[in-house]
């Protein structure tokens, strides 16, 4: 555990929208807990990247955030978890759904209607929202995700990237405060993935939605984030600002896919060349390199 990193992050309790302490969870029939003493604080408006090797408990943590754990999965949950000032274990999934939207990895298995707009309306229908309101909110969600033109198409006719945007619109229509996305791009090609990251970035910036993005492809995702959490074997091992986390030695040891820009920075540092800051994406790296290269030349 990098203690310095965790402490360097000043926690402002009043702004915290997600707060867990000492979270321990074991799946029914599981021998070992999938989450071990997870304590973290996420502030309102944060864009969090949650990463770590497969099977480290990322997905399990996501399920805790909207109440799938413990309500849908049962199993043994200890510790405290509060989301949007609701204690998860005391509120049903549908109450939490109004505050937390969960987008899954496989776009195909989370769309079940025969037209896009009907799918987007599904959650609102369940909540009993009056038709006029529903129409307006569905159209708004479709426009925010840039798929208004596809509203009458059948989901299975769309590309994976479009399907995933529909899935985002589906939870967006419920106007959540928090959006949790569990590896939403792992079936998409880079361009489709980039589009998804842009949409998510917009939701965070323009609407102030708190985003928690589970992702392996840090190269593409890191430029939007202001908070990175790394998990391993059910524990939170790193928690802090992107540049601190990516530059820490333990990130590399756990085998997180550190962005190449940061790797280049590290390689240069070993050889005695220091850039002014730690770059986490290629644009930053280019600028920082230009500074150093032209300065040394001058």
């Amino acid at each position: 555990m990098d203690d310095i990193l965790c402490e360097s992050r000043t926690v402002n309790k009043t702004l915290a929208i997600i707060n867990t302490s000492g979270l321990i969870y074991t799946y029914p029939g599981g021998r070992e807990p999938s989450l071990v003493d997870v304590s973290l604080t996420i502030e309102k408006g944060d864009y969090v990247i949650l990463t770590g090797p497969s099977g480290c408990g990322k997905t399990t943590l996501c399920r805790c955030l909207n109440g799938l754990i413990p309500h849908f999965y049962s199993g043994k949950l200890e510790g405290e978890i509060k989301v949007a000032s609701l204690t998860v274990s005391e509120h049903s999934i549908y109450e939490l759904a109004k505050h937390v939207g969960l987008v899954f990895q496989n776009p195909e298995n989370q769309l079940f209607a025969l037209s896009v707009e009907k799918d987007v309306a599904f959650g609102l229908e369940n909540l009993g929202v009056p038709r006029e309101d529903m129409r307006a909110r569905v159209d708004w969600a479709l426009q925010m995700t840039g798929i208004y033109d596809l509203r009458e198409r059948a989901p299975h006719e769309l590309s994976g990237g479009q399907q995933q945007r529909v899935a985002i619109a589906c939870v967006l229509a419920m106007k959540p405060d928090i959006m949790v996305l569990d590896e939403p791009t792992s079936f998409l090609d880079p361009l489709g993935a980039q589009k998804i990251f842009e949409v998510i970035g917009d939701l965070n910036k323009k609407l102030g939605i708190t985003v928690i993005l589970v992702e392996h492809r840090l190269d593409l995702a890191s430029k939007y984030a202001n908070h990175v959490i790394v998990m391993d074997e059910g524990k939170v091992v790193l928690d802090g600002k992107p540049l601190d986390v990516f530059d820490s030695e333990s990130a590399r040891l756990i085998g997180v896919g550190i962005p190449k820009a940061t790797r280049l920075y590290q390689a240069l540092r070993q050889s005695g060349v220091y850039l002014n800051r730690v770059p986490v994406n290629s644009q930053e790296a280019t600028l920082l390199l230009q500074e150093v290269l032209t300065r040394d030349r001058g």
Partner: peptide
């Protein structure tokens, strides 16, 4: 697809 960094 669906593999983490180490697996890759």
């Amino acid at each position: 697809i669906g593999q983490d960094y180490q697996q890759k």
